[in-house]
């Protein structure tokens, strides 16, 4: 770009549309909403950097910041274990969802077979059943199969979801049949067509599904609380709750644990922000 054009661009007045009263109100409301959302998070990190004497000092930037709380929490081996448990559960469930939801979604979108619509409606109808209603059957099933207090017990209800299947079906329907037919003529079997041709064409939907599943499982509380009894199998949210009970009024320790639990979520968000926003738009979801 030449210097002249750069200057011309800088000198261009702000379009009036950007200063309309409606826009000012929108931005103000969004700004207030943003502050309300971010403040607790900032206080959590701030408190985690304070010692016991400073926690009722409500300054956002601690007077004498310290990482001692982090060393203490991480020094307690249980926290690392819970962290690994959560990672294992969230990653395994995410991989499983990406694989099975897209496999079923693809089948429902691209194959014509008797009962297809019925199967799809049956899967979709499970979205209307609240988790609270499912917990008792899940528990009885886990007890019968000996899955109580096991990783499999924590993971199995979420290994495949109706939402994910629905999302993937909708996306596979946008893949032109010509792509699949060309691969069929080139000699690929149906599994290879799905894996090598169809899957790469729906990566935005796969990213959205993976992100939502990972975050959902990282923060899952209700079912892991019910199915686990030994502290070695706790996931982070359950571990943190028991930790908070143990630490009673040691808020700096509770906040340090919470901050550590939040970091992976923030990393996922910061790294994949683009995909999350696109995913929310694609899936028509509320974040």
């Amino acid at each position: 770009m030449t210097a002249a054009t750069a200057t011309a661009r800088e000198a261009r007045p702000l379009p009036m549309a950007r200063l309309r009263p409606g826009r000012i109100v929108t931005w103000t409301v969004l700004f207030i909403g943003g502050v309300l959302m971010v403040t607790p998070l900032l206080f959590m990190f701030s408190t985690s950097l304070k010692d016991a004497g400073q926690i009722y000092d409500l300054r956002l930037i601690p007077e004498d910041p310290t990482l001692a709380n982090y060393f203490e929490v991480l020094g307690d081996g249980r926290f690392l274990r819970w962290f690994l448990n959560s990672s294992l559960v969230a990653i395994a469930v995410t991989l499983s969802n990406v694989f099975f939801d897209s496999l079923v979604g693809y089948t429902l979108a691209k194959f014509r077979f008797r009962g297809r619509q019925f199967v799809f409606l049956a899967i979709l109808s499970t979205l209307m059943i609240p988790t609270e209603m499912l917990v008792i059957p899940w528990y009885l099933m886990s007890a019968n199969f000996g899955w109580l207090d096991t990783y499999w017990g924590i993971m199995f209800p979420g290994m495949m979801t109706a939402f994910g299947t629905f999302l993937m079906k909708q996306f596979f329907e946008t893949v032109p049949d010509d792509f699949l037919e060309a691969a069929r003529i080139d000699g690929l079997n149906e599994f290879a067509i799905w894996w090598r041709v169809a899957m790469p064409l729906v990566t935005p939907a796969l990213s959205a599904l993976a992100i939502f599943t990972f975050l959902g499982n990282w923060t899952a509380f209700f079912w892991p609380l019910i199915v686990t009894t030994s502290s070695e199998l706790y996931t982070l949210p359950i571990g943190l709750t028991s930790f908070a009970v143990e630490q009673a009024i040691r808020w700096e320790m509770i906040m340090t644990g919470a901050a550590l639990a939040t970091i992976p979520t923030l990393i996922v968000f910061l790294l994949l922000q683009r995909y999350i926003v696109r995913g929310v738009m694609l899936a028509g979801l509320k974040g």
């Binding site: 010509d178 069929r184 080139d186």
Partner: peptide, 15 residues
Amino acid sequence: DPKARNIAMVFQNYA
């Protein structure tokens, strides 16, 4: 099956 027919096809939208 299509693959066993030893033909190749070119589609309208290129595929």
